[in-house]
Design a binder for these strands. Sequence first.
DNA 1: TCAATAACTTTTCTCGAGATTTTTGTCTAT
DNA 2: ATAGACAAAAATCTCGAGAAAAGTTATTGA
Lengths: 236, 236
Amino acid sequence: MNDLANAPDLVSDSDEPKTLAETAYRQLRRDIIEGVHRPGDKLRVEHLKDQYEVGAGTLREALQLLVTDALVVAQGQRGFRVAPMSLDDFADITRTRVLLETSALQQSIELGDDAWEASVVAAFHMLSRAEDKLGDGSKASREEWEMRNRAFHEALIGACPSRWIRHFQNILYHQSERYRRLSLFRQPIPRDVHAEHQAIVDAALARNSAEASRILSEHILRTLEAVRQLPADFIN
Amino acid sequence: MNDLANAPDLVSDSDEPKTLAETAYRQLRRDIIEGVHRPGDKLRVEHLKDQYEVGAGTLREALQLLVTDALVVAQGQRGFRVAPMSLDDFADITRTRVLLETSALQQSIELGDDAWEASVVAAFHMLSRAEDKLGDGSKASREEWEMRNRAFHEALIGACPSRWIRHFQNILYHQSERYRRLSLFRQPIPRDVHAEHQAIVDAALARNSAEASRILSEHILRTLEAVRQLPADFIN
DNA sequence: TCAATAACTTTTCTCGAGATTTTTGTCTAT
DNA sequence: ATAGACAAAAATCTCGAGAAAAGTTATTGA
């Protein structure tokens, strides 16, 4: 139909940072997702420029990039703040993710070729291996699992030709990461995620679009439930 | 359910520009949508800073804001360019818009109260009046119609509580504006748009979610067909 | 004639200082 | 004691110049 699948991303994310601003942007993004800068915190340029070792203008640019990801909000003439978090917001993020990701998955199942099937199987395998090593509870293994989990979800919708859906999906994934981090903190991988992933793979390879969407939906929504059951004051 | 409907937008767009950078941003955005800067054009800071009468750093910031809207693409260390246009891209935009806007409409129909109904009727009335004045073919009347058309679509999904859907919807609307401009150029409001809008309003007020979505889908997709039938070299 | 290198020009990126605006703190008057 | 106004402090926003990179043209050798 169209060949957008191989077109460059709307916002380059994969390749190396070529500029100081982008380097600071990535460090800041990680720090926000990790909770170093907490929701609602004011991000003062004068303080942060020393911390991240760049000029004021450069840091400003990094903050602007974070506005694109909606991890930072800018209020004209009143500086920058870390985007607030709330249960309602996470519910919104999750539902929107379900809407986009199921649609992308359906298109993937419809259009995906052998190479797509192979990449899904491969990503699932990588993820399964990471699950095995998750027992030690180390931070490294958990981060590895995070990365591969993300790679798996990306592989699933990899054959979806819509650059826009993938772009929005990307933004939402970063957002959820902030929340999922909370749920992992208390109950490290509680439910049987492996079986859920396996079921999605099976349905996808069987080209059973409706079934795959249904399972994926429940899979994503379950994370919402996990966060909902956290102590109320966990999100502030 | 949740009270996000009245929460501030992810990216403030309604209120007045409080900073020079934001002013330049709006001017630039309009110029890109209007085609003053053409797709693929290089946006050289040194030239543009004089044209828009701001400093280099300030213009840089304005360009960064446009990256958020995906109207400008930044290539690290190689400056900024106007985002390219293509038929495939517009098809992608349109389909994604349909996905988001029908979902938002369904939620609106489900949750909307009397005030929502009133705002839909009001926006429809405003739009109809603008259609009457469209006969003179003046630029002013066409711009008025554009604004009210947008207001109408926004009113329809106004009761959708998802800030994220509305945010993405917003970005996509700006994108389509660039393309719709082309179709208006040749065939000024060709099809019977009024009847389509009327049908959507009727179905929405009757709380007929499925029917309203179906009509809205076709309504949006028709614009895609209109652009498809333009001379091939119109998009370059 | 063509390819590779080198010098030059253009453009982007980065920084620190000055001008505005917001915020904080203090003081006075009711 | 509270509210308002004034003053001081902090932070943001803006600008122009200098450093680094990319792009362009000229030159040289085979």
